[in-house]
């Protein structure tokens, strides 16, 4: 192969975590779980933020509010 030779620039020593991130990104293949049709990825987060700020049911954990609907949302996002 003909071509000009190149010398590397200043050495940089990545951390183990950074090397791990590079290996993970390079090894990534198909997306295992895709968003359902018509979904808006940010909506569940927005809903949680609104509920937390509104504090609708002061006496119960936010995930139990509205008959557990919020918990269902969280599960839907996770799975």
């Amino acid at each position: 192969m003909s071509g000009r030779n190149v010398h590397a620039v200043a050495l940089a020593e990545p951390t183990a975590a950074e090397r791990g991130e590079v290996y993970a990104l390079i090894g990534a293949g198909e997306v295992p779980h895709c968003p359902p049709p018509g979904s808006e990825k940010g909506i569940p987060v927005l809903v949680v933020a609104l509920l937390l700020s509104a504090d609708p049911q002061q006496d119960e954990p936010v995930e139990d509010a509205f008959g557990g609907a919020l918990q269902n949302l969280a599960c839907a996002v996770a799975f």
């Binding site: 200043a10 940089a12 950074e18 991130e21 590079v22």
Partner: peptide
């Protein structure tokens, strides 16, 4: 140019 994130 020696930025680790950039090289990564």
């Amino acid at each position: 140019e020696d930025s680790c994130a950039g090289l990564a």
